[in-house]
Design a protein around this nucleic acid. Structure first.
Lengths: 217, 217
DNA sequence: GTCTATATGGCGATAGAC
DNA sequence: GTCTATCGCCATATAGAC
């Protein structure tokens, strides 16, 4: 039945690269798949397929699935922290800095839809990265945020309240709708990531954060 | 060391029940495991082990893993919706009803830590249940919330704003800290589910929601 | 740097004894 | 209603050709 000689198999001949792939490209594709299906639900076969190569070829770039995932998370968190540092959040009055930070976060999640999903999946279910290499970064980000809010209160610019719970609340109202973009979009009747919806959401979030922080009008 | 005579294999001899398990107990255990590891990460072996029986025995209670998961989600959503209906949220002025609803949600998540995790995991990653039997319930809950907020605005009790984005924000500030209870507790320096922390969080959330909804002090 | 082919293990699910 | 035993499949990971 089968040609007994060689039968090179279904897809294509072996041999040379044809089209080598950049590790950075691989990371972006893997990030998308991990964000869509979670760590356990994302198979290397599927990631490889999305990247246009074979599962075994992934092992040339990363030694294990865990290592690939950790690289994805490391790059994501690194990008986000760099972004925050580049925006100068130390100038201007407290209300202005509040607006700038909020707009920056919304724009970032709008441009990288996987970011909120990956972060929330990590914090909720996994801790594959956060309980480990990323723990310090996450705790640090919360601490910095709480410190900023406390400073605003001490300066009399923000209403007096528990800065840690305020930080948790602000994180939640930012992260959740983008992490659950599908559900949110269905509720809004229009994709959350469409430009008009993004603009709506940004205006709403800035107003919400102001209402939470600034003294009564 | 061990009685050498029979050595019936690792766990215990075959045969009769010894201790039959209630399906409701099984659902609670499965809910905990699904909440901790996600759908794909939760193996039937592990669920069975937690329940004190063998993997194959689960198939007497549920025909497939999907069916078990759907039963878990159905019970969870049912419990939550029943709870909301039992609390009479149609009496009192708008500010009071806002407080009652907030306190109810916090108390619920405090008592059932898996609830927020499962809901967020569903909305973020899966949609195994929500894109299907549960879609209507979730959308309906958002609609009802938005309608309540809009009614408060029309009555002049709440500040005029987009009720849909306000509903998303309130959902996020409620859900996220409980869904990410581990991260939140590490940041707060004390477990989020300890009674003192719960009381703190409840007071903060009620104040936050009031600040978002009520006109400037 | 990508491929084919394969090793090994855990998964969901089934059969049938007790 | 639970058990032991097993099936078939797909997962991660490895070996080695080109």
């Amino acid at each position: 039945m089968k040609p007994t000689t060689s039968d090179p198999g279904p897809p294509r001949r072996s041999g040379r690269p044809l089209r080598p792939i950049a590790t950075r490209t691989l990371l972006d594709i893997a990030a998308r798949v991990f964000a869509e299906r979670g760590y356990d639900g994302a198979s290397l076969s599927h990631i490889a397929e999305q990247a246009g190569l074979r599962k075994a070829s992934l092992y040339h770039h990363f030694p294990t699935k865990e290592a690939l995932y950790e690289a994805v998370m490391r790059q994501l968190v690194g990008d986000l922290l760099r972004l925050i540092h580049e925006a100068d959040l130390d100038t201007g009055d407290f209300a202005t800095r509040l607006d700038r930070l909020g707009a920056l976060v919304i724009d970032t999640f709008a441009e990288r839809p996987d970011a909120a999903r990956l972060l929330v999946l990590e914090m909720v279910a996994g801790g594959r990265y956060m309980t480990g290499p990323g723990a310090a970064e996450v705790q640090g980000t919360f601490m910095v945020t709480a410190a900023f809010l406390a400073a605003g209160m001490a300066a009399g610019a923000f209403r007096e309240q528990d800065p840690r719970h305020l930080a948790l609340t602000i994180a939640g109202l930012h992260l959740y709708p983008f992490a659950a973009a599908g559900v949110a979009g269905a509720f809004l009747g229009r994709g959350l990531l469409e430009p008009e919806t993004i603009a709506e959401r940004k205006a709403a979030v800035l107003a919400h954060v102001r209402a939470l922080c600034l003294p009564g009008s």
